[in-house]
Simulated assay, not measured.
Amino acid sequence: MLATDIQLARAASVAALATEGVHAMGRGRFVEAATYEGAEKVSGVVVDPEKVEIHVVVRWPLPKPIPEIAGSIRERVAPEAAGRRTIIMVDDLEVGADENL
């Protein structure tokens, strides 16, 4: 059975947040990145018929390169995505208070 858009958005959010190096879900750049169904909203994930767009904030220092973090998220989401293209957008970088760049 195929997941609804909101179920897919929930699963993508959980998968992204469980990935090493992800600090939080992103909000998008010019418009809010979210999927809506009824009164429910999943922030940081946009689901449409062709793609799943996942917006994240990564943590500094990075545990691994950003392309590897994105690949890990894609692998976690692929079983739920039903063949949709999965795009990972890094919206921001979270630097700890005791970390210096």
Rank of each mutant, 00 (worst) to 15 (best):
residue 17 L to V: 08
residue 66 I to E: 13
residue 32 E to N: 14
residue 2 L to R: 04
residue 78 A to L: 06
residue 87 I to M: 06
residue 22 V to F: 02
residue 90 V to Q: 12
residue 90 V to D: 14
residue 100 N to H: 01
residue 53 E to Y: 10
residue 74 R to Q: 12
residue 71 G to Y: 03
residue 11 A to F: 11
residue 47 V to R: 11
residue 16 A to N: 09
residue 90 V to S: 10
residue 11 A to M: 14
residue 50 E to Y: 12
residue 83 G to A: 10
residue 8 L to Y: 06
residue 9 A to F: 06
residue 91 D to N: 11
residue 63 P to L: 01
residue 99 E to Y: 06
residue 13 S to R: 15
residue 73 I to K: 00
residue 61 P to W: 03
residue 35 T to N: 07
residue 34 A to K: 14
residue 30 F to R: 09
residue 46 V to K: 14
residue 57 V to W: 00
residue 78 A to W: 00
residue 4 T to V: 10
residue 26 G to E: 04
residue 59 R to S: 01
residue 19 T to Q: 01
residue 75 E to N: 07
residue 48 D to S: 14
residue 9 A to C: 09
residue 33 A to R: 09
residue 11 A to N: 12
residue 95 V to P: 04
residue 18 A to H: 06
residue 66 I to H: 07
residue 29 R to T: 10
residue 44 G to T: 12
residue 60 W to K: 06
residue 93 L to K: 00
residue 11 A to S: 13
residue 5 D to M: 10
residue 30 F to Q: 12
residue 53 E to I: 15
residue 53 E to A: 15
residue 23 H to D: 00
residue 78 A to C: 06
residue 53 E to H: 14
residue 22 V to I: 07
residue 94 E to Q: 00
residue 39 A to T: 12
residue 69 I to C: 09
residue 37 E to N: 05
residue 17 L to I: 04
residue 35 T to R: 03
residue 10 R to I: 07
residue 78 A to K: 07
residue 69 I to N: 09
residue 47 V to W: 13
residue 10 R to K: 13
residue 20 E to Q: 04
residue 97 A to M: 06
residue 50 E to F: 13
residue 22 V to M: 05
residue 28 G to D: 08
residue 61 P to L: 06
residue 56 V to D: 02
residue 89 M to F: 13
residue 43 S to W: 12
residue 86 T to I: 15
residue 14 V to N: 02
residue 4 T to I: 10
residue 61 P to N: 06
residue 60 W to I: 01
residue 9 A to K: 07
residue 37 E to Y: 01
residue 33 A to I: 12
residue 57 V to S: 05
residue 62 L to F: 08
residue 91 D to E: 11
residue 78 A to I: 01
